Simulated assay, not measured.
Amino acid sequence: MDIHWEPVSQLCNPCLLQYNFIGKFESLQEDANFLLRRVGAPANLTFPDFKDRNPLAERTSSRITQRYFKQLNATERQKTFDFYYMDYLMFNYPKPFKDLH
């Protein structure tokens, strides 16, 4: 499996490490800038804005997740949700479809 599709719960060892900061990709710029301030980085050092490079790029969102899940049948949706279930729990993501359990 390509690492980009691996569940985060399998990559970050949440039970082995005691994290004191967790950021989300959806709020990457805001979270990174917050962390920079917390570690005492100079005020002029900020995380780059991806929109500067590609202003039309759409980032990860619930809407995008739903769009991809709609392409799957009910069984495939459930299997995909099950595969990423721990990530949904760990990061408090909403279920993309109500029929998932």
Score class of each variant (00 low, 15 high):
86 M>L: 14
21 F>S: 02
27 S>Q: 10
14 P>D: 08
72 L>R: 09
38 R>A: 07
35 L>I: 06
41 A>C: 12
66 Q>G: 12
12 C>D: 08
49 D>M: 06
72 L>E: 00
72 L>W: 01
98 K>W: 06
89 L>V: 14
91 F>I: 02
21 F>I: 02
70 K>R: 11
11 L>T: 05
53 R>D: 15
85 Y>W: 03
20 N>Q: 12
5 W>H: 13
24 K>N: 05
40 G>M: 07
52 D>R: 00
5 W>D: 07
60 T>E: 00
94 P>K: 03
87 D>E: 08
99 D>S: 10
28 L>R: 07
62 S>C: 07
85 Y>E: 10
87 D>G: 05
60 T>Q: 06
21 F>W: 08
51 K>F: 06
37 R>G: 05
49 D>C: 09
19 Y>V: 02
92 N>D: 05
87 D>I: 02
70 K>H: 10
25 F>V: 13
101 H>Y: 01
53 R>W: 13
37 R>M: 11
51 K>Y: 10
5 W>K: 06
100 L>H: 00
32 A>D: 14
57 A>L: 13
12 C>P: 00
47 F>N: 05
43 A>K: 11
78 Q>K: 03
3 I>A: 01
37 R>P: 10
77 R>Y: 07
37 R>I: 14
83 F>S: 12
87 D>Q: 03
6 E>K: 08
55 P>A: 12
27 S>V: 02
8 V>W: 01
27 S>P: 06
67 R>C: 09
39 V>P: 04
31 D>K: 03
78 Q>H: 05
84 Y>W: 04
82 D>Y: 00
3 I>M: 03
72 L>Q: 07
55 P>L: 15
91 F>E: 03
11 L>Y: 00
26 E>Y: 02
37 R>K: 15
50 F>E: 14
92 N>K: 11
56 L>P: 00
63 R>S: 11
30 E>D: 14
80 T>G: 01
72 L>G: 01
43 A>L: 15
85 Y>A: 13
96 P>A: 03
14 P>T: 09
57 A>Y: 09
5 W>P: 02
43 A>R: 07
51 K>W: 07
16 L>G: 11
88 Y>C: 04
47 F>V: 10
71 Q>F: 00
35 L>P: 13
54 N>E: 14
10 Q>F: 10
25 F>S: 10
97 F>E: 06
51 K>D: 10
25 F>G: 05
46 T>F: 15
89 L>C: 13
35 L>C: 08
15 C>W: 05
59 R>E: 11
88 Y>D: 02
39 V>Y: 04
88 Y>H: 13
84 Y>T: 09
81 F>P: 00
71 Q>V: 05
71 Q>M: 11
31 D>W: 11
89 L>A: 02
89 L>T: 08
25 F>C: 09
32 A>Y: 03
92 N>Y: 06
66 Q>F: 01
30 E>V: 14
18 Q>I: 08
75 T>N: 09
24 K>F: 06
64 I>W: 01
14 P>G: 03
70 K>V: 00
